[in-house]
């Protein structure tokens, strides 16, 4: 994980080359001295592109997950805490969004907005909202009836304050865990959208796009789809370890909760959206 973040931070120093510089005469060179990850069909250095694409790919996934996390959490909190018709309304909205297969939803959104990394991330973010909303709602329901919330309520604290002060902090750890897992899904979602022709615009070195474009060369240049694939796998591994760590560190309660009530399905849905969109 640290490796990925360090790479993102120090990309220009690790691989100082220009990720878009073409050297047509050096196209499709296998990995070797000078080009540790080989060159692509334009003679661009794959290592440079992966390293310099780190910030972009991770950043974009962060943005997508942030969209999903923030809006999903807000919806889930409101719906879970207030209950009643608000809950009903939000839940119908969530049902509605969940009823679209994730990739299809993202596909539709990108088709409307037009391709491009920003739009792809927005689409993946929106597609992730219902997963978070459902997760947070479940958690909120569980927290709502706990003593400290009831105490605050009877002390006459406004709902807004209770949600921010008492409910959110208790829900946040779960959100963080699921978010780390969703990050991986977001990167993969870009790859799938690129594969279906709706990805980042060239020559942006986004991992997902590199992977999708590279699969054309799977027969003659294995490193083209494999290297960005490895980068994705390493990041996913990192995020997963981070997620597991967070889970253990932040809230031992989670595991008990998940095994015993509907929270389990919430977590799965949050995770599933990421995968679903992939």
């Amino acid at each position: 994980m640290a490796l990925v973040l360090l790479t993102a931070a120090f990309a220009p120093w690790i691989a100082p080359g220009d990720p878009t510089a073409m050297h047509l005469a050096e196209a499709l060179r296998p990995p070797g001295p000078g080009h540790p990850a080989g060159t692509d069909n334009f003679g661009r250095d794959v290592f440079t592109r992966i390293v310099q694409g780190t910030r972009l790919s991770i950043g974009a996934s962060l943005a997508a997950v942030a969209i999903a996390g923030v809006f999903g959490t807000a919806l889930g909190l409101v719906s879970g805490y207030l209950g009643g018709w608000v809950d009903l309304l939000v839940q119908r909205l969530v049902d509605l969004m969940l009823a679209f297969p994730g990739l299809l939803l993202a596909l539709g959104i990108v088709a409307v907005l037009g391709p491009g990394l920003a739009n792809v991330m927005l689409a993946v973010g929106i597609a992730g909202v219902p997963g978070f909303a459902r997760l947070v709602r479940g958690e909120t329901l569980a927290v709502r009836s706990r003593e400290f919330v009831l105490a605050a309520k009877s002390a006459g604290a406004p709902a807004f304050r209770i949600v921010l002060r008492h409910v959110l902090p208790n829900v946040a750890s779960r959100v963080a865990v699921v978010a780390t897992l969703a990050l991986a899904g977001a990167i993969l979602a870009t790859a799938s959208l690129s594969y279906l022709g709706l990805g980042a615009q060239p020559p942006t070195p986004a991992w997902g796009t590199m992977l999708a474009d590279g699969q054309k060369y799977i027969f003659q240049a294995w490193w083209l789809p494999t290297m960005p694939g490895l980068a994705i796998a390493v990041s996913v591994l990192g995020f997963n370890i981070l997620g597991d760590g967070l889970q253990d560190a932040l809230d031992p309660r989670i595991r008990r909760l998940r095994a015993t009530d509907g929270g389990g399905s919430g977590e799965r849905r949050g995770d599933g959206r990421g995968r679903g969109a992939a």
């Binding site: 878009t20 510089a21 073409m22 069909n41 334009f42 060239p202 020559p203």
Partner: peptide
């Protein structure tokens, strides 16, 4: 999309 590769070289 099918001309993406040619377009990238022209761009460069």
């Amino acid at each position: 999309d099918a001309d993406k590769d040619v377009a990238q070289v022209i761009q460069s």
